[in-house]
Design a protein around this nucleic acid. Sequence first.
DNA 1: GAGTGAATGTTGTACCCCCCAACATATACC
DNA 2: GGTATATGTTGGGGGGTACAACATTCACTC
Lengths: 383, 383
Amino acid sequence: MVQGTSEDVRRLNLSTILTSLYLNGPSSRSQLSARSGRNRSTVGSLVADLVALGLVDEQDPAPSGMAGRPSPIVSLRPDVAAIAVNPEIDVLTISVVGLDSRIIQTIKHSYSEIPSADEAISITAAVIQGLVSGPRRVVGVGVAVPGQVRSQDGVVTHAPHLHWIDVPFAAPLSELTGLPVAVANDASLGARAERAFGAGRGVDNLLYLNGGASGIGGGIVAGGTSLLGSHGYAGELGHVRVSDSTVRDSAGMPGTLEALVTRAQLLETVGLGCSEADLLEERLLADRSDATAAVVHQQLYRLGLGLANAVNLLNPELVVLGGFLATLLRYDADFLNATVHEAALGPSAADVKLVASELGPRLLPTGAAQLAFEPLLNDPASY
Amino acid sequence: MVQGTSEDVRRLNLSTILTSLYLNGPSSRSQLSARSGRNRSTVGSLVADLVALGLVDEQDPAPSGMAGRPSPIVSLRPDVAAIAVNPEIDVLTISVVGLDSRIIQTIKHSYSEIPSADEAISITAAVIQGLVSGPRRVVGVGVAVPGQVRSQDGVVTHAPHLHWIDVPFAAPLSELTGLPVAVANDASLGARAERAFGAGRGVDNLLYLNGGASGIGGGIVAGGTSLLGSHGYAGELGHVRVSDSTVRDSAGMPGTLEALVTRAQLLETVGLGCSEADLLEERLLADRSDATAAVVHQQLYRLGLGLANAVNLLNPELVVLGGFLATLLRYDADFLNATVHEAALGPSAADVKLVASELGPRLLPTGAAQLAFEPLLNDPASY
DNA sequence: GAGTGAATGTTGTACCCCCCAACATATACC
DNA sequence: GGTATATGTTGGGGGGTACAACATTCACTC
C-alpha cells in the first residue's frame, strides 16, 4: 500500500503518469515531465513501460509553433476499456467507456417491473458477454447503485427504490463475467466524476448532491479522495434532518432534506406529470408566478439549511448540484447562496461556492468507469 | 510531497519507523521490522540513522523469555520535546511534552480578563523562553485554540469566546520564539489525540465531540487522517441545526446543537454554579429525579439527532464524546444509542459505537504536541 | 556444561530506480 | 545556413532496499 521499496517507487511513478493522462488528456512527454516532477529521462522510461504494457500510444507531435525539438504526444489507448453499469428502477444502463473517458457504446435495457438484484446481475452479465468480444481489452466493471453499498465487498446494503436489501452484487457479477467488479453509491461516483472531469476539476474538497426522481443522494470528496467512511456509507446528505416537520422521506425518516425537497412537488407545482420530468427545468424557469416562487423558495431554504450543516461539518470549497437541485439553483442562486451563508458559520461559508453539475448524462458512466479503472491507474504494471 | 525518488523512500521509511514508535511506544527492532514490513537489515540501518539524529535510543533488551538472540529495544528520546499551548478564556495552559508523549511539565497562567491574542502570544512567548533552556531539544510549538483556525497560516479566524477574530497567531509566536508554530482547532486536535492514544486507537474513521463551558466543538478523522476541509474549518458539529427552535448559540445561530445542549442548563438543573462544573458528573449521575431526567433526555435527544446527521454524512466507526457530553452519555447510554440508531440510516447506524473520551486532561496537551511533532514524524532527517 | 535450534543482528553483494551531464535531434528565427 | 531553444537519448553515479550468508545470543535438553 504505502511505499517503501524501489518497486513501489516505480509503481507510483507509473501510476502518476497514467493518472496524469487520465485526468488531463493527451499530453506531450515534456508536459508529463513537468506535471510529475520527474526527470526527462525517467519520464521517457516510464512512458516506454506504459507503451509496452499496451496502455498508451505515442504519436508524432503536432506542430506546436515553438522552438525546440518536438515532444511526442502520449495518449491513452481507447481500446482499453471498462464497463459502466447503472441499475435504476425502470432501466439498466450499460456503457463501454474507454480509458480516454469517451463513452464508446451504451446499451439500455428497460424493464416493466423493478428487477431483483439477481435479475439485474444476469442481464448485466449477458450484455457484457456481447460487449467484451472484439479487439477491446476490458479491465473491469464499475457499478453505480442508487443506494448504500458496502465498499469492502460490493454488497448492496440498502437500495430502497430498487427494494434491494443486503444483496451481494460485485461477487456474483464477477463470477459470471470473469471480470473484476467494483460497486459504489451513485452519488459518491458522481462526486468523483465531477471532480475529475466536471465542475470540480482540481478541487480537493467538494460536496456533490444529486436530486432525482427517487430522492437526494450525496457524495463527498475530502482531501482529494472520496470520503467513504468506515464501510462506504458516507455522504447520505439526503437523510440529514433540516426541520422538525414530520413529513417522511423514502427511508421513513422525518424532516429530512429528501422528505422536504422533492422533484414530485416541483412537477406538481408547474403542472407536469412524473413522466415529464425532462421538461421541469424549462417550465420552472419560465414560471415566475408567486405560487411557484413560494414553493421553490421553501425548497431552496431547506436545501440551504442542509447544505449549511454539511458545510459546517466539511468546509468544502465547492458544492456541485445535479438533477433538479441544479434547476433549483438556476431558479434563484442568490437566494440559495444567501441561505447557506446565513446558516453556515462565517469562515466556512465564505469559502464555499455553489455550482451546477457539468457532466449531465455522462456523469454516471464516467464515474462508474472511473471506479473500474482505479486499480489499473494505481498499479499499471499489474495489467 | 508525494514520493518519487529514492530519497523519498528513505524519508518515508524513517517516518514509518519513528511514527510506529510514537504510536506504539518502545519496541524491539524485530517488532519494528514486522510492523513496517522492511527487511531486518533495512530496519537496522534506519534505526542507526534515527540514533544518529538524536531522536531515539537503543537499550539492552529486556529478558523476553523467548529463544533466539534478543532484539534491542528502541525508544523515543524524551528530551526531544514540543510545547503544547492552550489558551482559554480564564487560563493559558502551556506544557512541555516529550516525544514519548509524556507530559514533562505544565504551567498555567491565569488571567482575570479574557486576553487579547497579542497578550496571549506574548505571555506564551515569555513562558516558552523559560522552558526551552536546559538540555532539552524543543522541535516546535502546537497550539489548540477553541475556535476556527485557518490551517494554512495559523490565523485564528473566529474564536468567539476569546473574542479573537482574524488574528494571526502562528506567525507572531514563531517570530518571538524562533520555533515553528502550528495552530489548530482544539476539538480537531482532540479527535487526533483520541485516535492516536485514547478511545479511538487504530480507528480510521471517527468523530470527536467535546462539550465545554463555552459550547460544543467537533473534530473528524476520516480515512485515517484529520479532516480539515478546504481551509481547516471542518468539524463544526456544534453549529449543526437540529431543531426549528429559535434558541441561539454563541455564533448567533438558532436551533443548533450548541444552542440546545448546554452545560449551563445541566448545572442549573442540579443546582450547581458555573464554577462548580467539576462536580457536575458526580451530581448528575447521582440525581435520578424525573425533572433532571427530563432535561437530560431532552439534551440527549438533541445530541442524538446531531450525531445521527453526522453519522449519515460521515459513516464513522466510532463517536468519542468528551466533557459534559461524556457525562450525558454515562447518564443514559442506551437512550442516546437508541436515538442515534433511530435517526440515522440503518447501515451507517449499525456500524457506529458511542464511547466516552479516555484522555481526560491529557487530551489537549497531547493533541497540540502531536501537531507540533507532525513535521518531525513526517521527515525525521530534516531535524 | 556442552550441544542444538531458534530468533535476530550484521555484513557484503546485487539489483532497481532516479538523477545528472553530455550528446543528439528537431524546430523556429534571423 | 547558422544560432538559439527545447527535448529525446544514453551512460554513469548514487542512494536505497532485499537477500543470503554468517555471527551472536538465548532457551532448552540431555
